[in-house]
């Protein structure tokens, strides 16, 4: 997340809400009648559920390492735990109160609100060293994740929310990851970058039959540009995962940005195709 926590979270919720309101009852009826869109929603909800399980599993590993004060193990677990979160970020963010607690950043925590969650522990691990309350922060993170996992698994989505999510994930990359803001202490931004892109691709995969039927040219373009962006990301893969953001040159960051823009434009057209009768 980029701007102030609460408004941004509300904004994300609002996006989902307006997307839902944006469809008239008639649209809904038509969408409901198209078995392909119904299937797409089911497939994607299954994906969200699967990622939620992984989020819980990996966060547990991370939290356990923090509480055992195993710094190296915790550092290794940190970007991996965030993976499933990043894949379903728009869904996770739609629960306005939980997002700032789990994924809030220090500079955007509002007055009176504690700096907790992933990024607080990131700062402890990479900058300040583990603090007396690190274990408590870790416990709270796990409790919050348990709650968000339950909510995410029960979420019911509309087809237009899927398309909005595919775009939203790329927006996250453009405003938070490509700038190196998200993981400013660990510099593991490329992990999050990769997971956001995978999350966006999961939406397109769910919508594939719909797009294939309604706008195959757009689907071809989207697939080609996902592949091009993946190829750019691959350049920075290491045996452990991804290179640190800070090791990238300005030109390398620009190459990623160019490939991201190239994908984001056609992805922005998906919602119009999904909404079309």
């Amino acid at each position: 997340m980029r701007t102030s926590l609460v408004p941004a979270a509300l904004g994300a919720a609002l996006v989902l809400a307006t997307a839902a309101c944006g469809s008239s009852g008639d649209d809904r009826a038509v969408q409901a009648l198209d078995p392909r869109t119904t299937a797409a929603v089911e497939q994607y909800e299954g994906f969200v559920s699967e990622q939620a399980d992984q989020l819980l599993e990996r966060t547990t590993t991370f939290v356990t390492a923090v509480k055992a004060r195993e710094v190296e193990a915790a550092k290794a677990a940190y970007p991996l735990a965030r993976g499933p979160w990043e894949r379903i970020e728009p869904v996770a963010e739609s629960f306005g109160d939980l997002d700032p607690r789990i994924d809030g950043r220090e500079d955007v925590v509002e007055d009176g609100q504690e700096f907790t969650g992933f990024h607080r522990l990131e700062k402890d691990l990479w900058v300040d060293g583990l603090q007396p309350d690190s274990a408590a922060v870790a416990d709270r993170l796990l409790a919050d994740v348990v709650e968000i996992v339950a909510r995410a698994k029960a979420v019911e989505l509309a087809p237009d929310q899927l398309a909005g999510g595919a775009k939203g994930l790329l927006d996250e990359v453009a405003t938070g990851k490509i700038t190196g803001e998200e993981d400013r202490y660990s510099h593991t931004d490329l992990y999050d970058f990769d997971e956001n892109v995978k999350g966006s691709k999961a939406v397109v995969d769910a919508l594939r039959p719909v797009l294939q039927e309604r706008d195959p040219q757009l689907l071809t373009e989207v697939d080609a540009r996902f592949a091009a962006l993946d190829a750019e990301l691959e350049k920075h893969r290491t045996d452990k995962g991804f290179a640190l953001y800070t090791s990238l040159s300005k030109d390398e960051v620009k190459e990623l940005s160019v490939a991201l823009d190239a994908l984001s434009e056609p992805i922005a057209r998906v919602s119009g195709v999904v909404a079309a009768k």
Binding site: S23, D160, R269, S271, G272, A275, A276
Partner: peptide, 9 residues
């Protein structure tokens, strides 16, 4: 600007 309807950028 607005002719594309509410569902398109």
């Amino acid at each position: 600007v607005i002719g594309g309807g509410p569902h398109k950028a």
